[in-house]
Design a protein around this nucleic acid. Structure first.
Lengths: 149, 149
DNA sequence: TCATAAAAAGATATTTTTATCTTTATATAT
DNA sequence: ATATATAAAGATAAAAATATCTTTTTATGA
């Protein structure tokens, strides 16, 4: 339901959180290889995230992407909204035009509460938290989460 | 979340249900105009639906699309599965690869029950029922449901 | 039998999304 | 200062989804 760009973004931000520091910035290629997604495409997405202040970057030698204090409180919601436009969640699940409480589509009454819970969750789930959960679930190999496709 | 093709299909089938009989078959152009969607594209979609027996068609003069007895028990699920592939509902909402009960994505525990309810609903919601609801909600004009976009 | 109207099938075109490539700007180290 | 590594920006390409156009098949009515 999310675009690939959004999924790449989530994956990359988690990787950054777990693998970069201000003294060890990561290049877009490096990240892309680690999480196995197309490097030039990710580069674009990282630019978007940087513009909106979700991650940080510095150009030049030893430059790259990293997380600073400004970025710590960002949520899953912020990433998705930055890349995809969160409105897609608010629109009718079956894309019926006039869908609302009085004129609900077939899915409306079951989608609405799900959507509300989801958005609440996305807004409270911080990147830090997510990254931590991923660490704990690093079941397979050390390339923890080539899991987002 | 559904493809446009699927939405067009739902819309067209409802229109057929409410406006065609075996003695008054409707051409794809006629349907497309009524529900305001691209005619040639709809034609393709109607072909798919016909192949799978969700609607019926006859070629030649006074031919067109209509519903026969064979079609009456079809559900919303059947339409979507025909055009889109219903598997998209079963995959992880955030497209995380190994998402499951033991390794759930952020949305998993809220998506799973929603999905189950939705699919159950889609499977029990017959076309006839939907069409009837639309009739009742024909709030605006007689072009009842150019509502699905 | 023939002309016609319509679906079916196939081919092509456009748009959107995803992916790649090239150039420019900038920070760092020498 | 200069060379270099890197992000940023811009341009282009490929793939997928959506839309259109053309030809073929088939049922109907004259």
């Amino acid at each position: 339901m999310l675009s690939k760009a959004s999924k790449y973004a989530i994956s990359a931000v988690i990787y950054l959180t777990n693998n970069s520091t201000i003294d060890k910035k990561l290049g877009s290629k490096e990240i892309a290889e680690a999480i196995e997604i197309p490097a030039p495409f990710l580069a674009k997405t990282l630019q978007q995230l940087t513009k909106k202040g979700i991650i940080s970057s510095i150009k030049g030698p030893h430059g790259g992407f990293y997380l600073s204090e400004k970025n710590t409180d960002k949520t899953l919601f912020d990433i998705i909204d930055c890349v995809d436009d969160i409105e897609k969640f608010n629109s009718c699940y079956l894309s019926q035009n006039n869908c609302n409480e009085n004129n609900p589509c077939v899915a409306h009454h079951i989608y609405a509460p799900f959507k509300d819970k989801l958005i609440r969750k996305l807004k409270t789930k911080t990147i830090i938290e997510m990254a931590e959960e991923f660490k704990q679930n690093s079941n397979l190999n050390n390339q923890i989460f080539a899991v987002l496709t």
